[in-house]
């Protein structure tokens, strides 16, 4: 039980921003959005590559909020793709089959590549459909 309270204390104290990386990250996203509008260039930010305090990641995701699109795909375990309050800013979280997070990215683009049907898969699907119809 005491463990639980200690954790609670830690969480409360950590609410104050620690590494100060949240604000710069939001600015990086802003720059990426400008670039996306200008020339359609794609940006991805790997959240694992930055030091963020335990609560800072939550803070960041809170600030980005939830938009209109929520997609969940099943390819080598689930992946959640959520468009944030800011259209063009997507949060992509990959899980493995045990539902453990294996990657967390912020993608700035019109559609994350993973959402689109892939050429190879389309071809394979077509073959399957043809053999079903034959």
């Amino acid at each position: 039980m005491s463990c639980m309270t200690d954790t609670a204390v830690l969480k409360v104290e950590a609410t104050a921003s620690l590494t100060h990386n949240v604000q710069p990250l939001l600015h990086e996203i802003r720059h990426a959005l400008v670039k996306l509008l200008d020339d359609g260039s794609y940006t991805a930010i790997d959240l694992r590559s930055l030091p963020l305090a335990p609560v800072e990641e939550e803070q960041l995701l809170d600030k980005l909020g939830q938009g209109e699109v929520y997609a969940r795909l099943h390819a080598l375990g689930p992946t959640e793709i959520v468009e944030t309050r800011f259209p063009g800013v997507w949060v992509v979280v990959h899980f493995n089959n045990d539902n453990e997070v294996i990657g967390r990215f912020i993608e700035i683009c019109d559609t994350p590549a993973l959402l689109r049907s892939q050429q190879d898969d389309i071809r394979q699907g077509l073959e399957q459909l043809q053999s079903q119809l034959a």
Binding site: R48, S49, L76, I102, G103, F105, Q118, D121
Partner: peptide, 19 residues
């Protein structure tokens, strides 16, 4: 192919390579 792309993204992240 989707699974493979996901695998590559996770591998890049694991190897500390840029996306």
């Amino acid at each position: 192919r989707r699974g493979f792309l996901k695998f590559c993204a996770a591998t890049a992240s694991m190897m500390a390579l840029p996306p």
